[in-house]
Nucleic acid binder design. Structure first.
Lengths: 242, 242
DNA sequence: CCAAATTTAATAGTAATACTATCAAATAAT
DNA sequence: ATTATTTGATAGTATTACTATTAAATTTGG
């Protein structure tokens, strides 16, 4: 009984530590003023998600956003230097949210294999319901990440921005999946590449099934998740068992 | 002897058919005027490759290109509607060139496994030497494809442009690799997804090793090719043997 | 090889984008 | 209630992404 209580206490403390680290905390160099700190900031975030989803990143402008929220273009510049920084903010928020899902939902699983399977599921499935956070629509944000995330790092400024930590959350998430892979099969030679490929590849397969359906096996029935689960099973789990 | 001659004749005719289909022929809706048809057109292509490589696609403009080739901005618009179309042209050229490499270099291989291995090598390795085509630098073009290709399809116009056949060469190349996969292991459930993932994933891994080296196992010694070869060996070749 | 047709260069101009600056009005904090 | 901060409104700049026009240069066909 005492052992049980001690374990519970340990688990609780462990969870608290994790949850603290997992708060959606975005590098404050990404914004000029924290959009979470005001009503206007939250409206900027909320409506920018809707507008980028509808118009695409190229057609989206601060002027249009200003009109949509009945605020002024110049006010938006007080929160974000430019739309690139806003995209970095939104995608960082998304990866942070996904990391939170990953850690929370794998925490209670003890089997490394089941942990890995759950992890792959979380990181490759489509987001279908808008949960918890009031002003942020995760369903749309998932679609934005599929269509726009690569534009945030395929720039000439990537090395500088990487140094400034703008991609830290994304990279940490890749490393978490890598750790799950290594835990099942320590002898696999390319755990980091596999992890980064699963996360990026899932975005790509989701894109393909919507737009280039001829070059993917994924569709409404066969999900990217089932493809990547099969992949991981063959490469990591089955070989890990041997 | 006669049999041998007949075979040679058949092989030659087969090669001719293939080479005809493989001529770098780009959908003529991509350009206003064929850049191959004039000296100015070739200079536009040659220098746009150098400029996009140096400046990145966002900073590259027709005005700057005009200045670089000592020609006029308006003259460039007679060849390409806008820089997006120019990017489509360059990347189509690249995929066509790669397809040519793929078909030519796998043609003489009879073993399906060796064919697949060679195919994966061709489609995942870095381009290191500028061959054959006078005014097009394939080494730079490969780097442009790594850094910019996804921008050509991650747009709101993708479905329309896809219907117009702007991505046909790329998709055909994915299908060719898929065919190589199926030839080795017909029971693998996701040959198209694996093929598209290898081609896109190789670009991604090349990017990561240059800019986010922490989340890939690839580097100067461990190439993306060795990673993808191992993948294909485990998923397709070993299981195909069983 | 000369005239006609085509291509290219030069210039100008437009609408939109991506900002910056200024200042007044509204709101919140002490 | 006063002060500080935030927001809104207006204006302005440099650059981009084009289009239009016309003259000069080049190519081509008879």
């Amino acid at each position: 009984m005492i052992v049980l209580l001690l374990n519970l206490a340990r688990i609780r403390s462990y969870m608290e530590t994790l949850l603290k680290n997992l708060k959606v905390e975005i590098n404050d160099k990404i914004y000029v003023k924290d959009p979470e700190s005001s009503d206007l900031g939250k409206r900027i975030v909320k409506h920018s998600i809707e507008m980028i989803y509808e118009l695409g990143f190229e057609q989206f402008t601060f002027k249009k956003l200003g009109a949509a929220i009945k605020s002024n273009e110049s006010s938006i510049y007080r929160y974000f230097e430019n739309k690139h920084k806003l995209l970095l903010y939104l995608t960082s928020w998304y990866w942070s949210w996904l990391e939170y899902q990953l850690v929370l939902q794998t925490m209670i699983i003890t089997s490394p294999q089941d942990k890995l399977i759950k992890g792959v599921e979380i990181l490759t499935q489509e987001v279908t319901q808008d949960s918890s956070f009031s002003h942020i629509n995760e369903v749309l944000l998932n679609k934005i990440v599929i269509a726009e995330y690569s534009k945030s790092y395929l720039t000439k400024e990537v090395d500088k921005e990487n140094k400034d930590g703008y991609f830290a959350i994304y990279k940490r998430l890749v490393m978490r999946l890598k750790d799950l892979i290594v835990a099942v099969n320590g002898s696999y030679k390319f755990p980091s590449s596999l992890s980064s490929m699963i996360i990026d590849g899932a975005l790509h397969q989701h894109f393909l099934k919507e737009h280039f359906s001829g070059i993917t096996d994924c569709n409404k029935k066969i999900t990217p998740t089932s493809y990547f689960l099969d992949l991981v099973e063959q490469l990591i789990i089955n070989n890990g068992k041997k």
